[in-house]
Design a protein around this nucleic acid. Structure first.
Lengths: 264, 264
DNA sequence: CTATATATGAACGTTACCGTACGTATAATA
DNA sequence: TATTATACGTACGGTAACGTTCATATATAG
């Protein structure tokens, strides 16, 4: 019996991460690497729930694991001095949490907070180092993600400078929708307002308009995307650009020198 | 006789890049690598002026050179469908233009446009590849920059969500000041308004307020920073965070395996 | 079943910034 | 020197989003 976030309304309260027994591998980095590399990583990975509000680790802290989400949305939050916090980047099954692993730095960047629940594979940096030693395709795939994350970040910088609340909310919902397996997922308007740095009242107003247009339904912490196209019409071009950057990752065939014993 | 941008008011019109004969190496990546690696790169580099308004290359275009600024500010611009453009990232002597070199992709990200004139070393990707083969410290230094660029981008995402025009203008001016050698540099209010995605009228109003406070002087395309501290008081915390990220780069001593014949 | 906490809707005046337009001073050009 | 272009100052009404507060509906807990 597979875990379905839409059928688990109590998930929100289970802040203590729990190990997920049976699951689908949906993380695109893991799906892009060679089967033997995937088998290696899966043998070392621990799959845990991502519970809404869960803080994976704090900014600047030395991190011990990279986290590869299969489902859900985790946001790297910036903590401002006045107490406000806002999203720096959002991560789903297209990527992984712990980007500074790529850069060789020991400290995390940003504070990852789960906004839409799901589940993820935790892999220790020791295991990852070992995997990369054997399977270069692993670091290749992570590096490709680093590039698309850079595109996401740049696009977000521009988007946050120019675009309006409704466009940005629509964009965020579309990204979230891409990162879950169901049209319905757990997400409060409060959550959206916090990641986008706007008032809940503004989000409420935007969502109300989107509901009237038929793009979505909202019921106490659960959104249902009823018409993506309407959402896409309301979103800015930034959505497509970021999606395009992520889309390139899985498909790009890497000239793989992995697994020497399997090399041609 | 060294070239001084503050003494060359006609520079703005010389859109055709010109080779700079005598210059100081101010680029922090180049200054951070081993002397022999620097000597190698300098033997291959071509030093050209960065002229205000110059477009180094266009978004998505295969790029042939990485550009290491010694002086000036170059912005990666996003071109929106409605014709507006806005900054995704700004680059000075702390980094280089052509970040996707790091990621192994052949295409550039964003359209680099010179906002504050200066000069830079152009190094072909072939020469860079060769250098990295011999001197790992080169890729180490570039990778460290990639990390701090990521920090810059994330901080900018958050900043653009939350902070006001005056804070953002102050922050941008401080970054620019860090990237030039003089307190006076060429920069129009129009230029600021375009990179920050706000009206020139808004920039004008902000600058007028900053002038009244004594932070700067403005005279037809030339800014003079007269009191950094006032500017820092008006800027948001994002300035310090980004500066800190860049500051770490030059000083971090890399466990260098470069240049085998010189290894200990 | 009742009480409490949570999520959303809706309203108020306020503020920051917008789009636009026009005037003015300085620099470049003829 | 006269003319044009550029950079900046300023002003107008308009609007998007702000901070705040209160009401309402639904879920959870006792």
């Amino acid at each position: 019996m597979r875990w379905d976030p839409a059928k688990d309304p109590r998930e929100v309260k289970q802040l203590k991460p729990e190990i997920v027994g049976d699951f689908d591998t949906r993380n695109k980095i893991l799906l892009a690497i060679r089967p033997d590399a995937l088998a290696f990583l899966e043998s070392r990975a621990v799959v845990k729930r991502l519970s809404q509000g869960q803080v994976l680790y704090t900014d600047g802290e030395p991190f011990t694991h990279a986290v590869f989400p299969h489902e859900g949305v985790t946001c790297l939050m910036a903590q401002m001095q006045d107490g406000r916090s806002v999203e720096k980047a959002s991560i789903g099954n297209e990527g992984f949490i712990g980007i500074s692993f790529i850069f060789g730095g020991g400290n995390s960047i940003g504070e990852p907070v789960v906004q839409v629940p799901g589940y993820a594979s935790w892999i220790s940096i020791e295991d990852l180092d070992e995997a990369i030693e054997i399977y270069p395709c692993v670091s290749d795939a992570m590096m490709r993600y680093a590039k698309s994350l850079t595109v996401q970040l740049m696009e977000s910088v521009a988007c946050n400078s120019l675009h309006k609340a409704e466009q940005r909310v629509s964009r965020w919902l579309l990204h979230a929708h891409d990162r879950v397996s169901s049209d319905t997922f757990q997400l409060t308007q409060q959550g959206i307002s916090e990641v986008l740095g706007m008032r809940r009242a503004t989000v409420s107003s935007v969502c109300h308009a989107l509901m009237k247009e038929g793009a979505l339904k909202y019921t106490r912490g659960n959104v249902t995307i009823t018409d993506r196209r309407i959402l896409e019409d309301n979103a800015c071009e930034c959505y497509d650009r970021i999606r395009l950057a992520f889309a390139g990752n899985g498909s790009v065939k890497t000239k793989d020198k992995s697994s020497p014993e399997l090399d041609d």
